[in-house]
Design a binder for these strands. Sequence first.
DNA 1: GATGAATGAGTGTTCATTCAT
DNA 2: CATGAATGAACACTCATTCAT
Lengths: 200, 200, 200, 200
Amino acid sequence: MPKVGMQPIRRQQLIEATLQAVDQVGMADASIALIARLAGVSNGIISHYFQDKNGLIAATMRYLMNTLIENVAARRQALGDDSPRAHLQLIIEGNFDASQVNGPAMKTWLAFWAASMHQPSLHRLQRINDHRLYSNLCCQFRRVLVLEDARSAARGLAALIDGLWLRGALSGDAFDTEQAQQIAFEYMDMQLAKQVGTGA
Amino acid sequence: MPKVGMQPIRRQQLIEATLQAVDQVGMADASIALIARLAGVSNGIISHYFQDKNGLIAATMRYLMNTLIENVAARRQALGDDSPRAHLQLIIEGNFDASQVNGPAMKTWLAFWAASMHQPSLHRLQRINDHRLYSNLCCQFRRVLVLEDARSAARGLAALIDGLWLRGALSGDAFDTEQAQQIAFEYMDMQLAKQVGTGA
Amino acid sequence: MPKVGMQPIRRQQLIEATLQAVDQVGMADASIALIARLAGVSNGIISHYFQDKNGLIAATMRYLMNTLIENVAARRQALGDDSPRAHLQLIIEGNFDASQVNGPAMKTWLAFWAASMHQPSLHRLQRINDHRLYSNLCCQFRRVLVLEDARSAARGLAALIDGLWLRGALSGDAFDTEQAQQIAFEYMDMQLAKQVGTGA
Amino acid sequence: MPKVGMQPIRRQQLIEATLQAVDQVGMADASIALIARLAGVSNGIISHYFQDKNGLIAATMRYLMNTLIENVAARRQALGDDSPRAHLQLIIEGNFDASQVNGPAMKTWLAFWAASMHQPSLHRLQRINDHRLYSNLCCQFRRVLVLEDARSAARGLAALIDGLWLRGALSGDAFDTEQAQQIAFEYMDMQLAKQVGTGA
DNA sequence: GATGAATGAGTGTTCATTCAT
DNA sequence: CATGAATGAACACTCATTCAT
């Protein structure tokens, strides 16, 4: 039943099917045929909306990234407190949001990362993502720390967040968000404690 | 001219060729034909020494893991100081050893991790590895911290080490070992500082 | 906004796009999508104006043939001299006209010929074309030669024209019209020289 | 039943199957699957012996060219008379040999020519072939004609041979070798007649 | 009249695996 | 021990065609 204006609908359909497929069988076995079947469309439609399989993969990665960005942005809007600590806490929480720590998303991110080591287009996307986390953290730390300390704190916290996330993803068990956040918050507070005295 | 005792030599040859192949083209494109060509042997021999491609992949992962274990063990042997701090430092340094933070090893580890999400045999190996790092760290922290604190510290430090390593791997730039170690050492010292007073 | 009387315009548009496509990528890669893009119309319209792809191909071939026919006809109209030699010269010149010896036309003719070996509809068109050249030449030679000589001369001259054209097309270099015509003229004159004496 | 040293056998098998396929359905429809089926082997074997389909096509063209070359060479060996006329006659006869004017060979040559307009590798082969005919003819004409006349005669005769062959191929009827050779011989003799007087 | 969404068969190619030698 | 010939299924991708709008 051909219709006009299907592009955004089909694109979203296919991206979601890609996430499903990667979750179920891994990226190596996420064939076009499987993705199309999961989306309930024909094989050929994929090259109609995305140039090729790489295009679909990249679009899926972009979608995941945007979800994270929007998630953090939404939390920021709802934030009353403007303190650096509140912002950092928000970023940490955003990165451990349910939209990021579920099975499909974790498997997809891991697969993307591995693939990005040999695919320039994916590598570019991944670098942008990595840099944004660091940059956001650094920006907040900078409000209370000297530049060098802020940078170091941002590097450490970014690594800690990714590491907690990674070990959670690889463990195979359900992600213990509470525990991860506590560890990250503790690190954040340790770093913030370095701030120079504001008093007289 | 048939030879005897070729098994260990050939196996090592093929494992090294696998690392080469994954480094050069990524795991997805590391075909048996390519690995055999890099090893200078025929395609057919792989199933002779390893059951199939998965067997070769698993053997290669086991090889990488053993390298890390032996590296840490060697450092431990050369260690004069028996303090927890010295042991923890040693573990950190072992994980950032040149044998782990070079391109081929990083690409292979990442590829293994991604693959392990859908291959039970690889997943088992990877869990053992993850657990050993946590276990080693926890063991040392336990000598000066109460159980709960030790566990939390070990979780955090393990995540921090993996996160620093991961972000280094994904960045594409040369790994800044010095910087990573400093961040990890700082975290270690922060955790050790929690120890209950030993004094009067 | 539907329009009336678009048929001849669209057909011509599509035929010209077909010539362009065959010139640019060869008949094998001249897909409907490419032709439609070059024509600036949608894919679907081709089956509206031509039954299918074969219909478009056949129409394009007919167009090329008509161009050649009209070219010769126009030259004939402008001809003052009614001698056999003048007519033959005209036919030769028509076959080496710029409309026939440029890249796109040559590539298309060659592709048509090859395709005609396995497509009855194209083969029929091509036979008509071949026969017309022979027939026109024979008709003129007949005015001064006995039947057998005229037929042989026509066969030879037709082959020579086609052969010069073919070798020009395949060479990849610019077609040397002057040289080709001289060779054809010489052959023509050699054959005309066989004519029986008209004198007492 | 795998054996060693199969390469030349399989290559020849596949080349002959390619000729068969092109004869039966045309180059456009001569798929790898069809060629493999005609050769009685699996699809995959083609990339084992030829890099890809283009490799097989090019090898087939080279085979046809070599057949022609060897044919002419064999005739030359059997030649008693060393006169230019005898050599030219021999070249003409070689080009109209049964190995060149049968259906499969003609269809394949035509398809190759058309394809060569868009495939550099085929174009190179085809140019070599074209040049050899011209060169051989020119060499013989040169023995009795001044350079300019020899070149023109060679160009004309080469075109005449190709043109006779082409029109024969396209006609769809059985090739009339006798008639074609007579026309070519006549042209040859007309050109040889230009030679400067050797007598007193 | 015209669009472009959608199909699904078909393509060339790759590849892990098997096995006779 | 080791080779490399051979298989055949699977893959991404292309494409002419159809048809609701």
